[in-house]
Amino acid sequence: MKDYSPRPDLLAGRVILVTGASSGLGRAASLAFARHGATVALLARNEAKLEAVYDEIIAAGGAEPAMFPYDLAVADDRSLETLAGTLAHHLKRLDGVLHSAHQFYNLTPLSLQTLDQWQSLMRVNLIAPFALTRACLPLLKQSPDASVVFTGETHGHQPAAFWGGYAVAKSGLETLTRIWADEISPEENLRINTLIPGQVATSLRARTHPGLDPDTLPSTDDLMPWYLYLMGADSTSVRGQIIECRN
Rank of each mutant, 00 (worst) to 15 (best):
L190N: 07
P138D: 11
L121F: 05
A21S: 06
R78T: 10
V97C: 11
L11K: 03
P218I: 06
G85K: 04
G232I: 04
L228E: 04
Y70P: 00
I192P: 04
N46L: 05
R178M: 10
E51P: 00
V149N: 06
G13P: 10
T194M: 02
H102M: 15
E188N: 12
G13T: 09
L94S: 10
E64S: 03
T175W: 06
Q113D: 07
W226C: 03
N247W: 06
F162P: 02
D221H: 12
H90Y: 14
K170G: 06
L137W: 08
G211S: 06
I184L: 15
L190E: 09
V53G: 01
K2Y: 03
T114K: 09
R207M: 13
V148I: 15
P65R: 02
D221W: 05
A66W: 09
T108Y: 08
I196T: 05
S111R: 01
K92P: 02
F162G: 09
T82L: 10
Q117N: 06
A201K: 09
M1P: 00
E188M: 14
G20I: 06
Q241D: 09
W118M: 12
G232A: 13
M1G: 06
A59C: 07
D76L: 02
K92Y: 07
G37H: 05
A41I: 15
A128K: 05
L132E: 00
D3S: 10
Q241R: 14
L173I: 15
W163Q: 03
G20R: 03
R205G: 00
L83N: 01
N46G: 05
R191C: 11
L121Y: 01
D9H: 12
D234M: 08
A32M: 09
A169P: 03
E51R: 13
G26F: 04
L17G: 05
V168K: 01
G26S: 13
A101F: 07
L98E: 05
Y229T: 11
P197N: 03
A135M: 01
W180T: 04
Q158L: 12
Q142V: 04
K49M: 14
A233W: 00
L107T: 04
P65Q: 06
A59E: 13
L126R: 02
T133F: 01
H102P: 00
Y70S: 06
H155N: 15
D215C: 12
Y70E: 08
T82W: 06
P6W: 14
H99R: 08
E188W: 15
Q142E: 11
L173E: 08
T236E: 13
D116V: 08
E81I: 05
L140G: 07
K170T: 10
A48H: 15
L140M: 08
G24S: 03
R134Y: 09
T175L: 12
A75V: 00
N193M: 11
E244V: 01
E188V: 15
L112R: 13
Q142Y: 07
L91H: 14
A233E: 11
L176V: 08
L195N: 02
W226Y: 15
P138V: 11
T154R: 13
G232L: 03
D71S: 06
H155S: 14
H157E: 15
P186R: 12
P210W: 14
D222G: 11
